[in-house]
Design a protein around this nucleic acid. Structure first.
Lengths: 146, 146
DNA sequence: GTACTACTTGGAGTATGCTCAAAGTCAAGG
DNA sequence: CCTTGACTTTGAGCATACTCCAAGTAGTAC
């Protein structure tokens, strides 16, 4: 998932190509359109959807938001603001800023848990090196003290 | 959610206290017991569940795993191994190590997205300072070049 | 003309993870 | 004895996010 458009063909793209380029399935793309997360896609004369490079990039950005914990409904709201034009810029700014803060908190939590896990892994290694006769089976693995 | 036991009373704990100490609801704790994620809790003579300090710590550790993307089923499996004793130590080690790697990848993804969001925020600030007459409404917000 | 492929729509079904409600038990207080 | 409050069990319901299926169409290949 490049953030540049290098890998996206210039010509418009079918739903199968869009799926490949975004990592979604065709069904998921149609589902997103149905729930209003993606705008009603342009159709070719035969009724098939086609997507522009910008639309693919737009979906990729959305997938980033999703991958970082934003719900479909929140994304839908953000896109609604985008459609309403420049008058909503400050609101969109606030939303993205809030999401960025949320990501920062998420990273902090992940790093904390990494420390806890590394402590446990160290503990396991000690047990393996020095099989403890009085090791009580810690049915409820915890993280208190050494 | 301290990783030490400082805030957990020494005396055994009711489900309402357990809920408070773990951030879960009583319903969720009962649900976890039902699906086998938590062992069948000891009951007081009147049938009420009670929890030890170690059990509270165990739940907190599980909630860390959950908060970092482990599913209930994966946790259930991990706990099953724990119950099987020291023979499963190396398998548990492998599982935790894999989860730690997953967290590392997750952090990397979050940080990448933070960069993309910061780029967009910067772009919004520029638009606000210098309202662009030819700003095309980027219906599909992307992240390609400036 | 027939087959094949790539799509279309609409609707139903599924997985995960809760969340709530109904009906009952038990112990303490007034 | 009656009420209140904190629990109990069982089972159903719900939100999110897909995922699959059936029936149909449009264009190409032979």
């Amino acid at each position: 998932m490049d953030i540049t458009a290098q890998d996206i063909p210039e010509t418009v793209t079918s739903i199968s190509q869009a799926a490949e380029l975004t990592g979604l399935t065709e069904d998921t793309i149609r589902y997103y359109e149905r729930i209003g997360l993606l705008p009603y896609a342009d159709r070719k004369p035969n009724g098939h959807r086609h997507y522009s490079r910008d639309q693919i990039l737009g979906i990729r950005f959305l997938m980033r938001l999703k991958a970082t914990g934003m719900t479909l409904e929140e994304m839908r709201h953000y896109l609604e603001l985008t459609h309403q034009g420049d008058g909503t810029l400050s609101e969109r700014y606030t939303l993205l800023e809030a999401h960025n803060d949320k990501i920062a908190r998420e990273i902090a939590k992940l790093q904390e848990t990494q420390e806890v896990i590394r402590y446990k892994l160290r503990h396991f290694r000690e047990l393996a090196e020095n099989p403890n006769t009085e090791s009580y089976d810690c049915e409820a693995p915890d993280s208190s003290g050494p």
